[in-house]
């Protein structure tokens, strides 16, 4: 008995090692294009040597190991947690709590997002030089903070709307296309300096940590509600989170 158990264990371990190797190989493969592009442009186009090759190689090992750990962490941590929370909310049947959770998740993960902080500081600078606001550091700071809060509100609102859509089973394209139409109309009325920032703000809000969690939440909800398909209804939360910031920032530019 003990021996058979040992053999099975050994087999299990072997399968584990094989899947681990597969993950590491995948991470390595994902990195090949970046290395190839940078090497080609550095050597062939710019005709310059690589500074500090040793440091680059060490960095690459870090990237491969890091990416592999991240992928494993997704499967054992973020995905199961997002899905189990979605199921728990569905079982509880408390709509207000679920929508409150969606809002907090969107707002909380966005407001401190480094990419957003950088973009809103830049935006304040632009508004200052364009004469939309007073050109001093204090006004810039307030403007940047207001912009950040606007985007965070937009993402919170997006997740509330997106979760509500999953519950109701509305088809996503009417909402998204409606949003596009709104963006186009607002573009005509918003000040020209804000348009570029507004369009970009949709892309910068969804960070690497938020995306897997929000995706798992949507898919978990769609799976827990009878009559919803995970593929048709589960995806789409990120889409709302990248659309509403554009609308909110355009409006922000018109109001401030």
């Amino acid at each position: 008995m003990a021996k058979a158990g040992g053999v099975a264990n050994g087999r299990l371990r072997l399968a584990g090692i094989r899947s681990l190797l597969k993950i590491y190989f995948g991470s390595f493969r994902d990195l090949v294009p970046i290395v190839a592009v940078i090497a080609f442009f550095q050597i062939v186009v710019l005709q310059e040597p690589f500074p500090n090759l040793e440091r680059i190689l060490i960095g690459m090992v870090f990237v491969v190991v890091g990416l592999s750990l991240f992928v494993q962490g997704l499967e054992i941590g973020l995905f199961p947690l997002g899905e189990s929370m979605a199921q728990a909310f569905a079982r509880k049947g408390n709509l207000a709590a679920l929508l409150g959770f969606a809002f907090c998740l969107g707002f909380g993960t966005t407001v401190a997002e480094p990419a957003l902080i950088a973009v809103s500081a830049k935006a304040a600078e632009i508004a200052g030089t364009a004469g939309a606001i007073a050109d001093d550091p204090e006004t810039h700071g307030t403007y940047a903070l207001q912009l950040r809060l606007t985007v965070a509100l937009a993402v919170g609102g997006a997740l509330v709307l997106g979760v509500f859509r999953i519950l109701k089973g509305w088809p996503i394209h009417y909402l998204i296309i409606g949003g596009y139409v709104l963006v186009v109309i607002l573009t005509f009325f918003a000040p020209a300096e804000i348009v570029g920032i507004a369009y970009d703000s949709g892309g910068v809000t969804t960070s690497t940590m938020t995306v897997p969690l929000v995706t798992a939440l949507g898919i978990g909800l769609a799976g827990a509600i009878r009559g919803r398909s995970p593929l048709l209804d589960g995806f789409g939360l990120i889409a709302f989170a990248s659309l509403t910031p554009i609308i909110f920032v355009l409006v922000f530019g018109m109001v401030v």
Partner: peptide, 30 residues
């Protein structure tokens, strides 16, 4: 689950440091 979170944390950290060390400086100067 906590272990999974730890993996994500360590993984992202290594990933970002590696990029900072190896690729971002060259990519940006380029």
């Amino acid at each position: 689950l906590c272990g999974g979170f730890a993996y994500v944390l360590v993984g992202l950290t290594l990933f970002l440091v590696g990029l900072e060390e190896a690729l971002f400086p060259i990519g940006e100067t380029m």
